[in-house]
Amino acid sequence: MASVLGWASAALVLVGAFFFLAGTVGLLRFPDVYNRLHALTKADNVGLGFVVLGLILQAGSLLSAFKILLIWLLVLASGATAAHLVATAALRGGIKPWKHR
């Protein structure tokens, strides 16, 4: 049982790491700020989400599991808000969205 949990946890953490990688690649490769925001939120929501899930499986106590979950929810809320604010500001600041030609 413990080893199954361990494997699951390892897999989840690795999936999370993959999404962080995807976020970083997107950040570097995407053409404008709005597209990059999209990549960024993948890392925020999904990447950290999977890492947190993996760690919760290994968490020693209910309290620490709850704390880790709370951290993820916080990042989710502030990440979404920050992305929204940056996008709005960029739009107001006159940065034109990229269009594929």
Partner: peptide, 11 residues
């Protein structure tokens, strides 16, 4: 740098 979006921030 924004006029809209403040409600989200306030939230």
């Amino acid at each position: 740098a924004l006029s809209k979006g403040l409600p989200v921030l306030h939230g």
